[in-house]
């Protein structure tokens, strides 16, 4: 399928959905299937989005959510890489701490949000902390796997070529771990955004989660939907960026593996 055709079909899905939404909130006249009070209308939502961008008020919220997600991603990745390497190269530490890692990972992060607010306040820090707990584990598991799953033959070859421990790290473990980490980039970046938005939703004074919460507070359904659409578009843009980065970082992968993400 050509790119143009694919894009057209993707747009078609959106058009059909919006059209159905419009029809269901408009007919029968006077008493529609979907009452606009609960479901809003495409027109109202579009108008709300237009207003936000026209008066520029949305940019501040987008910038804040983006900043929180970015920091959560960076700090979570650094932590995940560090601990992943540590566990893979120190099997004793890994064995001892394994149940605790599983315990923390199985904890629903949402219960942590109030605690983080208590500890770090209503500002960005508590959202970054929430995003961190999500990103950290994904990166950690992938790096751990990446270091452990290095082909024994490649490792033996590296040793026979004369690599010392530091060079093995640089030329073998590190690229292998990074390739695993990059193959989960979509998930970890997505979770960084989720952490930021959920954190904002549960208590903040700015960000996309905050404007959705505000709209809900006054039963402004158009505002809620508009917030969700802006969030969706925001995630799509970030995802496209991640795909672009990935293409450049994983050129050495066979095509089959590239599309597997």
């Amino acid at each position: 399928m050509s790119r143009i055709k694919l894009l057209l079909l993707q747009v078609l899905v959106a058009v059909v959905c919006v059209l159905a939404w419009h029809v269901l909130t408009a007919v029968p006249h006077g008493n529609p299937f979907l009452p606009p009070f609960f479901f809003s209308t495409p027109y109202d939502v579009a108008l709300q989005i237009y207003k936000w961008f026209a008066d520029g008020s949305i940019w501040r919220h987008l910038a804040i959510t983006l900043t929180e997600a970015t920091f959560a991603f960076i700090v979570g990745s650094l932590g995940g890489i560090a601990v992943g390497f540590w566990f893979a190269l120190q099997p004793t530490a890994a064995a001892v701490l394994d149940p605790y890692v599983k315990m923390f990972n199985s904890l629903p992060r949402i219960v942590l949000a109030p605690i983080f607010t208590l500890w770090f306040g209503l500002g960005m820090l508590s959202k970054i902390a929430l995003g961190f707990t999500l990103v950290f584990f994904i990166v950690f598991f992938n790096v751990y796997q990446g270091v452990k799953e290095v082909s024994p033959t490649v490792l033996a070859n590296a040793r026979m070529l004369g690599m010392n421990e530091r060079q093995l790290m640089q030329h073998v473990y590190w690229p292998s771990a990074l390739s695993w980490m990059f193959s989960s980039l979509h998930t970890s970046v997505g979770f960084a955004v989720v952490g930021a938005v959920v954190g904002e939703y549960l208590g903040s004074s700015a960000g996309l989660g905050y404007i959705i919460l505000q709209a809900e507070g006054i039963f402004d359904i158009a505002g809620v939907f508009a917030g969700m659409f802006v969030l969706a578009a925001f995630v799509l843009v970030i995802d496209a960026f991640v795909t672009w980065v990935e293409r450049r970082l994983l050129v050495w992968r066979p095509a089959a593996a590239e599309t597997r993400t």
Partner: peptide, 25 residues
């Protein structure tokens, strides 16, 4: 020098990097 039976090249390095690495290290 050991030429292995199974795949032993570094998949994340280009061909020339794979060959040059022995000297570089």
């Amino acid at each position: 020098g050991y030429l292995f039976q199974s795949e032993a090249l570094f998949p994340w390095k280009t061909v020339i990097e794979n060959v040059a690495i022995g000297l570089e290290i």
